[in-house]
Nucleic acid binder design. Structure first.
Lengths: 190, 190
DNA sequence: TCGATCATGTAACCGGTTACATGATTGT
DNA sequence: ACAATCATGTAACCGGTTACATGATCGA
């Protein structure tokens, strides 16, 4: 119960409404897709674990002719666990960027291949940035309706700042690569 | 051999010099600490795996009275594997930010706790940013001595842009949280 | 002499992903 | 009728981390 983030994601969502495992996955995919992934293979076993530890309770739900499903609710114990986790500031988070890993060894291939990688990176985040602009507008309109919206907005703004930094860097990086090899040619000719 | 990044990190370092497992760890920790972590428990088994597949070769080395050690060199096959990996642009990388995960559920605790988390985040990246400024100066001085230095510099510049974005966001976020709760108080008083 | 560093590894564990299996219900 | 979606799960796998074990050598 130290590193497992799925626990807290589930508790976080159950904290403001009861949900099934299936519904949880949809919520996560919709809300956290920019900085988290989910899978049933992680969600269902974690729900069992949480139920065993009394952080959530499960109820079988058969609404009328509806098919049966299992609805989970957070307990007081679960809420405390969530609050405790949210309160603790993060120490030594190492954010893993595969693009940097590749670029670090960029010298092993021709420069145009690196430029191509950077361009593909740029395109991806151009789109993602636009997605976030849409979220921002929506959230600002309903900001004072729910305290949660403030925090959702903060994560959106984070994404925007960071994606903007990505795009600025990408342009600069392409420029530097091109500059490097033209300058190198000049000195080789001497 | 799809997702395992350690393979390529090792190949990348062996590509310009022969190294032992122990030396590899030091190199990784020194060069990639801002965006990667390493451990012997990953390095040594991966070296065995690479040797089995003929991507590296191992030689026992007993220089004079030196203690024995195992030095690894990259093979042509290994170099091809590395080049191939570096050439491929990355698809759907999801970068996981724990701070965003916590902040997303920030409404469950008092606002000052979130502000404290943000401040601790700020401090950490203030320091990291300064570290990178030092790297930048060093690399720029030796830029044309080795093609690799260009790519090292690009990763440093990436870090700088991103860390700068983090810091800008943190300030903005603290401001928005404070603003939110003062405004909310005003409306409550009505 | 004694701690730091060099040097190599293993075993257990953990968080997460992928692929698979099953079957009901809803909408076209 | 048939595809899409709802709904729950398991098993195998994988990449990575932590903790542990061992012993040599170097410098103060």
């Amino acid at each position: 119960m130290k590193e497992n983030k799925t626990i807290y994601i589930i508790l976080g969502f159950l904290n403001h409404e009861d949900l099934t495992g299936y519904e949880l996955k949809k919520k996560i995919d919709y809300s956290l897709s920019h900085f988290w992934m989910s899978s049933y293979g992680q969600i269902y076993p974690t729900l069992n674990q949480l139920a065993e530890n009394g952080l959530v309770i499960r109820r079988n739900y058969n609404g009328g002719q509806n098919r049966e499903k299992i609805v989970y609710s957070i307990t007081d114990k679960g809420r405390k666990e969530l609050e405790n986790w949210v309160s603790q500031p993060i120490e030594n988070e190492v954010v893993k960027y595969e693009i940097l890993l590749k670029l670090f060894f960029g010298a092993v291939v021709a420069p145009d291949k690196n430029i191509r990688s950077i361009k593909s990176f740029e395109q991806r985040y151009q789109i993602k940035k636009q997605e976030l602009e849409h979220y921002e507008k929506c959230l600002k309109q309903v900001l004072y309706q729910d305290e949660n919206h403030l925090y959702y907005l903060l994560t959106v703004l984070f994404g925007q700042k960071v994606y903007k930094a990505y795009l600025e860097w990408a342009e600069q990086a392409r420029g530097l690569i091109e500059e490097y090899y033209t300058k190198k040619e000049d000195t080789t000719k001497d």
